[in-house]
Design a protein around this nucleic acid. Sequence first.
RNA 1: GGCCCGUUGGUCAAGUGGUUAAGACACGGCCCUUUCACGGCUGUAACAGGGGUUCGAGUCCCCUACGGGUCACCA
Length: 478
Amino acid sequence: MVRTRFAPSPTGYMHIGNLRTALYAYLIAKSQRGAFILRIEDTDRERYMETAVSVIFSSLESAGLKWDEGPGVGGAYGPYTQSERMGEYVRWAEALVEKGMAYYCFCDKDRLKTSREQNAQSGYDGRCRSIDRNEAAERVKRGEPHVVRQLIPEGVSVFHDAVYGDITIDNAELEDQTLLKSDGMPTYNFANVIDDHLMNITHVVRGAEYLSSTPKYNLLYDAFGWRKPIYIHLPHILDEAGEKLSKRDGSASFQDLLDMGFLPEAVLNYIALLGWSPRENKEFFTLDELVEAFDINGLSKAPAIFDAVKLKWMNGEYIKKMPPEVFYALARPYLENTVTREGVDLKTLAEMMRTRVEFVKDCAEPLDFIDRLPDYSAELYRHKKMKTDEKNSLISLESVVAELEAIDDWSENAVHEALITLAEKLGVKNGRILWPARVALSGKQSTPCGATEILALLGKEESLRRLKIGVDKLRVCP
RNA sequence: GGCCCGUUGGUCAAGUGGUUAAGACACGGCCCUUUCACGGCUGUAACAGGGGUUCGAGUCCCCUACGGGUCACCA
C-alpha cells in the first residue's frame, strides 16, 4: 500500500509551497487508495513555536486534507510527533556507531569553523573519525559534549527520482553530517529517515531543496539494510520577481491568503496547477477530482511563479459557481453592514454582485449608494456613447420625473415600461433617458445594476427625491 | 566558487522525432447591453543562444548563457 507523509516543522506559518507539498503527498497516496500521514518534526527546540502546530492542523483542515494517521487521529505507527520518539533516534544512532557507519565527534563550534575554512569544499574534515572506538565511548560516558556523525564512504551515489530522473552525485560532495546533536536531539535528516522507515513510508514527497542531500539519506538506508522509498522531489514556487516566495509578498502563507479573502478551494485548485498539469485540458478541480485525475507524470521540473492575478480570477470563478444561498450566506454580513434601507432585499443584492466580484468582501462597497446618495459632479451626466451631456440630461430628467410621479404601480416592470415608452415618445434612444436617470439615482459612474432596478430598490419617494436633486444640479449648470 | 537541477508567449502550461507549436490568466478589438460586470467571438505574443545526430529536432547529445537549489549541532 502506498503511504505518503507530510512532515512539517512547527516553526511558523504554513507556507504556500509547503501546503502544495502536502497536497501532492495527499494526492499521490489517495490516487492509489493509500494512506496520508501527518508527522510533526519538532526537533529544533530553538525555532519551535507552539502555535505553529495548530496552524498546521487548521491549514490542513481548511484545505480539506485529512490525514489518516497522525496527531489527533492516532495510528499503528505512533507517536507521530518526533519529540515523543526520542528513544528511537538514540537507539538507531548507536546501532549505526556499532556498525561503524557513524562516529562520535567532539569538535566544538570553533573547531568546526576553522575546519570549514581550511576545507571549504567538503565541509567537516572528519577529524574525529580516527578516534579509537573505545576511547570515544569512554569520553561519551564521562559526559564530554559530542554529536554523532554519519560516516560518508568514498564513492559515487546514484539514485532515481520520480520527477527528475537519475541523479549522480560524488560522495566527496557530501559531508559527514550530524545525526544526533549535542542536546541529544536528532537532526531533521536523521529523524526523517528513521521515521520514514519505521512508519513504512513508501513515497517520500518533498521540496527540490533535498535533491542534493538525498544520497545521504540513501547511505543511511543502506547502512541499516532498509528498503529505500520512492523519491518525488517538487520544484519550488517563486514570487513575481522569480525569487523564493517570502512573507514580504503578503501572500506567502495560506492563512494570509484566506485572510485576504481567497477561498480555500480556489487556493488549493490554483496551487495544484502550479507544478502539475492534468492529462485532460481542464482547470477546475474539486479535491476529489484532483485525486481522480492526479498522475505523477504531470509533475514539472521547473520552478513556477505564483501569479496572484490568476488566483484572483480563479477565486472569482469559484464565486460565480457558488450556489446563490452559499454566496448569500458569505456576503450577508458585508451587505448588512452597508445597506440598511428598509424594504431592500439583500438576497437580490447578493445575486447582483455574484458575477462582479473576485472577493466576497467586495460585494458591499458598490452598493453603498443605496443608503445615501453620494455627492457627485454634474460631469457624470456626460457620456459619449450614450450621447448625453448636462443639457439634454436635464431635459431627460425633467420628463422622467413628470412621467414617474404619475405612476402608482412601482414594480420593476412597470417603471421600466414607463421609461421605455417615454424614450419612444421623445424619439430618443433608451440611453438618453436611462443614463441620466441612473446617474441621478446613484450618483456613481457605474453601478451593479441599471436605472430601473435602482428605482425598484429605492421606492417611489426616495427615487423621486434623488431625481429632483439631479434636476436641480443640472439647472445650475452653465 | 564546487556540485545538483532547470530554461516553450509577461505568467501558468500542453507537447515524449514529422503539429498551421494547444489551452488558461493578463492585455487589445468586436458583439451583447440602460452604466459596470457576466457571456460570446477574435487578435498580439513563445521553443534562451550556438554546435552536432537525423531525411527531419521544442523534443536526443555537447558547449555557452541565464535562473534556481545545495554546501549547518535549520528543517
